[in-house]
Design a protein around this nucleic acid. Structure first.
Lengths: 247, 247
DNA sequence: CGCATGAATTGATCTGAGTCAAATCTCGGG
DNA sequence: CCCGAGATTTGACTCAGATCAATTCATGCG
């Protein structure tokens, strides 16, 4: 457990006037809905937060204090039971937005959010950000669009968890990560890194570590992919991987 | 397969000026965001659609033509594979809103929607409804809130599908339905009807018909509930049911 | 550069839920 | 009220994936 290490918080705002403008996810995140001038409204309320792998951003049950944007790295969204069983209900990549219940009043964090790689967040106090959403409908619309795609993804995952075999789950997971992580390669052959270890993969696709491992081995034997270390995947045939991923 | 029976479509609008005002889900649906006068904007574009159990409202892959409100009955939202496996990714009850991707352009229906009980929908043409959303931010906000709760529910279901045992799944499902269906009873003892048959329950919680049936039998043996016919549940101890439902 | 430690793989065995196959129940229609 | 089709339950057996138990591998550190 490395959960006790304190994350780093850096104020932005007036000191760095162009912080938002220079942001790596400026265009792909919610902020993309704002013009350069409007952006300064956001700039003044934002703070940067840096987390090391394993550190928690928020914990299930905490009172929700702010919204955030992921500017770098990968985080996992998880729900756990006392007995150790846990389910990763989502992964957060650069430009993803964090902000569960939108009501203005108090609210509880529905999930624990933990950094899986070094993580950089841009956080906004809850009430102030809510005001901005009201002022800039384009941003609220963008949030709605994103929420709808997350809903769709969650339901996709319900199909995976409810009806797919172990093989199909692993193949689907690899395809999902390949899409999200910048990868090199072309056509049918690409390489990419897994942000998660086997334990987290297992918790995301509803299997055990051992089963994940065995399925990866089988995909290697089928000549569909090759591992370079435990984290780097090279797929020789993405189409075949797609076939293995089921419907 | 009863899918070929045509549903009934009735125009509303000018002929029935007060149609919306008299609507059963007036206050609990999105429309609750509108004042009595504003409601007429909605009234003129809405049509009523009636489906019998088993009839489809839309099919996965169709081009999305409209949004809708459920005014009565229960529908299931499902995604299927060619080989017969299918997963119910959600249930729609009275006052739930139907409208997947919000973009103004063309879009595909992501799921098949099928009536499980006699169903009554209030449908709105896609583009016209989108315009109304822009005109009435309160309605758009309400849509965002609803979408967020659906996302939360979907993730809850991911936990069920990914980590819960058969017993826990059946108990969780019963609790979910008990909340959604109007039920009579008090305290710890309540009775309610299951809108779904065993096959649909199985497809919703990622089990087989037989396993669902066996788990229901066991819950009976434990004295937690009693069945009156296959569809009516009487639970003598909701707390015990909650315990069985796992985390 | 070797060593230690946690992560990943592999193997052997077990088991919860699936599959296949009958009963049995239920309920609408005649 | 009875009948029959479809839904549900029950039973016997199987199997995919879990569990338990060693290896083997990778990587960071002294």
């Amino acid at each position: 457990m490395k959960h006790d290490i304190d994350p780093t918080l850096t104020p932005m705002g007036s000191g760095e006037p162009a912080a938002c403008a220079a942001c790596a996810v400026r265009n792909s995140s919610l902020c993309g809905a704002l013009s350069a001038e409007e952006l300064s409204d956001l700039n003044v309320i934002s703070r940067r937060k840096t987390l090391k792998p394993g550190q928690l951003h928020v914990m299930e049950g905490d009172s929700a204090k702010d919204f955030a944007n992921v500017t770098q790295g990968v985080a996992k969204l998880l729900r756990g039971a006392e007995d150790g069983r846990q389910q990763i209900v989502g992964l957060l990549f650069a430009s993803d937005f964090i902000g569960g219940p939108m009501g203005i009043g108090d609210a509880e964090e529905p999930y624990t959010i933990e950094a899986v790689t070094p993580l950089e967040l841009c956080i906004f106090p809850r009430t102030e950000f809510a005001k901005l959403l009201e002022r800039y409908p384009a941003m609220e619309r963008k949030l709605l669009d994103r929420t709808l795609s997350e809903l769709q993804l969650a339901r996709e995952w319900m199909v995976l968890l409810g009806r797919k075999t172990a093989r199909e789950r692993v193949a689907s997971f690899l395809l999902h990560v390949a899409e999200k992580m910048q990868n090199h390669g072309c056509h049918n052959k690409i390489g990419f890194d897994l942000p998660l270890g086997r334990a987290d993969i297992a918790d995301h696709i509803g299997l055990t570590i051992e089963t994940v491992s065995r399925q990866v081995t089988e995909l290697k034997k089928l000549g569909i992919l090759e591992m370079q270390g435990a984290r780097h995947v090279v797929s020789y045939d993405m189409d075949a991987l797609r076939t293995e991923s089921g419907f």
